[in-house]
């Protein structure tokens, strides 16, 4: 099952906070698609997800400096 969260309107630290809380809510094996902006969110959201033992299964450019990051729990 796939879940979606848009953090393009968020700023530090809520970018990380929202992703962390969203990941806490989904079940093991499920995926979370995160729409985020380039720069700090793009650099750090995938890295922090991997540090927590999750898998980043894809990063897709969506235009206008937005990216879709897929994280598998």
């Amino acid at each position: 099952m796939s879940h979606f969260i848009d953090i393009t309107g968020e700023h530090c630290p809520m970018t990380f906070v929202k992703v962390k809380l969203a990941l806490a809510k989904i079940g093991g094996g499920e995926e979370l698609d995160v729409l985020l902006k380039e720069g700090e969110p793009l650099q750090n959201v995938p890295r922090s997800a991997e540090e927590q033992g999750f898998t980043v299964s894809g990063i897709e450019e969506k235009g206008n400096g937005n990216y879709l990051v897929r994280i598998r729990k």
Binding site: C12, V17, S48
Partner: peptide
């Protein structure tokens, strides 16, 4: 609280 939440959210 910004440092605290940022740190907690990044594990």
């Amino acid at each position: 609280f910004t440092i605290a939440t940022g740190a907690a959210a990044t594990n």
